[in-house]
C-alpha cells in the first residue's frame, strides 16, 4: 500500500480508539470533577462492561445485532449497579478522602479482576459485530461497524453534555462540583449525586467497552490500558475539565493510533506516559487549563 492510503487507514483506526477513549476518560473525568477522587478501578469497570457484553450476547444467542443491542443496555446498567454499591459501601464511608479512596479503589480493582478471572476465565473471547458490511474504498475495504462506533460514541457524548448542561440533574452535579457544602445548604442531595456520578462514570466506561468488544475481544486484563490512557487524557485535558478531556482524548487517541501503526506501540506508550508526567509537573492544571465545562 502507498503511504497516503496507509496514513488514511492509520487515522481511521486512531479515530475508533479515540472515540472509545473519549467515552472512558469522560467517565473518569466526571468522577474526578464532581467528587474530587481518583477512581483507580475505572479500567476494571471498562473490562467488566466487555465481559458482561460477552455473556449477554452469548445468552441471547439469536442474531448478532440482537445480542449486541441487549449487551449495550444490560452491561452498562449492571456495571453502574456494581459501582453504586461500591460507592455506597466503601467510598462514602471513607468520606471521599482522596488518598484513602485511591487505596480502596486499588482494592476494588483486584476484586473485580479476580471475579472476572474466576468466572470468565483467562481466555480472550470475541463478540460478533451487530452489522456486517464493509465500506469499499479505492485502496482497501473498511469495517462499517468501526464507523458506527465513532458515531455512537459521538452521540453518547452529546447526551452527556446535554444532561450536564441542560437538565436539573446536571445542574445538581455542577453545583455539587462547585462547592459541596453550599450545595448541601441548597438542599441538593449530595450523597445521591455522588452515588449517581460514580455510577455514571462507570457506565460510560462500560459503554465504551461494549462498543469496542466486537473489535477487540473481552479479556480479564483488558482494563489496564484504558485506565492508564484515561489518566493521561484527564491530565492533559486538565483535571476535572470535561471539554478538555474530550479534546485530549481525540488528540491522544488519534496519535496513539497513528504512532502505533508507524512505530513500535511500546515506544509510543513510553513517550506518552513521560509526556504526561512532564505536563503534570510543569502545568498542574493540564494543557487545556482548568476551566469547567
Amino acid at each position: 500500500m502507498d503511504f497516503g492510503p496507509y496514513l488514511l487507514l492509520a487515522t481511521m483506526e486512531g479515530a475508533v480508539g479515540a472515540a472509545v477513549l473519549a467515552l472512558t476518560a469522560l467517565g473518569l473525568s466526571l468522577v474526578f470533577g464532581v467528587m474530587r477522587v481518583v477512581n483507580v478501578a475505572h479500567g476494571e469497570f471498562f473490562m467488566l462492561g466487555a465481559v458482561i457484553a460477552w455473556w449477554v450476547a452469548h445468552l441471547v444467542g439469536a442474531h448478532p445485532a440482537l445480542g449486541f443491542l441487549a449487551a449495550l443496555v444490560v452491561a452498562p446498567i449492571m456495571v453502574g449497579l456494581v459501582a453504586a454499591v461500591a460507592e455506597r459501601l466503601v467510598l462514602r464511608r471513607l468520606g471521599y478522602d482522596p488518598e484513602a479512596t485511591i487505596v480502596a479503589t486499588i482494592g476494588l480493582l483486584y476484586v473485580i479482576q479476580q471475579a472476572a478471572l474466576s468466572t470468565f476465565g483467562p481466555d480472550a473471547r470475541p463478540v460478533e459485530p451487530p452489522v456486517d458490511f464493509r465500506i469499499l474504498l479505492p485502496w482497501f475495504g473498511y469495517s462499517g461497524y468501526k464507523l458506527l462506533v465513532i458515531a455512537a460514541a459521538a452521540a453518547l457524548m452529546l447526551c452527556v453534555w446535554w444532561v450536564l448542561a441542560r437538565t436539573r440533574v446536571g445542574l445538581m452535579m455542577r453545583a455539587t462540583r462547585f462547592d459541596r457544602e453550599t450545595a448541601r445548604a441548597f438542599a441538593i442531595p449530595v450523597d445521591r449525586v455522588y452515588g449517581g456520578v460514580f455510577a455514571l462514570g462507570a457506565m460510560l466506561a462500560a459503554v465504551g467497552a461494549v462498543l469496542i468488544v466486537p473489535i477487540q475481544q473481552a479479556h480479564y486484563l483488558m482494563g489496564h490500558d484504558p485506565l492508564l490512557l484515561s489518566f493521561i487524557v484527564v491530565i492533559i485535558g486538565g483535571l476535572g475539565s470535561l471539554r478538555g478531556t474530550v479534546l485530549a482524548a481525540l488528540v491522544i487517541g488519534m496519535s496513539d493510533g497513528v504512532i502505533s501503526v508507524f512505530f513500535s506501540p511500546t515506544l509510543a506508550k513510553i513517550l506518552a506516559t513521560l509526556l504526561v508526567a512532564i505536563v503534570l509537573v510543569i502545568r498542574p492544571t493540564g494543557l487545556f487549563g482548568a476551566r469547567a465545562a
Partner: peptide, 16 residues
C-alpha cells in the same frame, strides 16, 4: 487460586 480477592479485600478492609 483466587488470591487477588484477598489482596483487594485486604486493601479495602484496611482503609475502612
Amino acid at each position: 487460586s483466587a488470591y487477588l480477592f484477598l489482596v483487594g479485600l485486604a486493601l479495602i478492609a484496611l482503609v475502612l
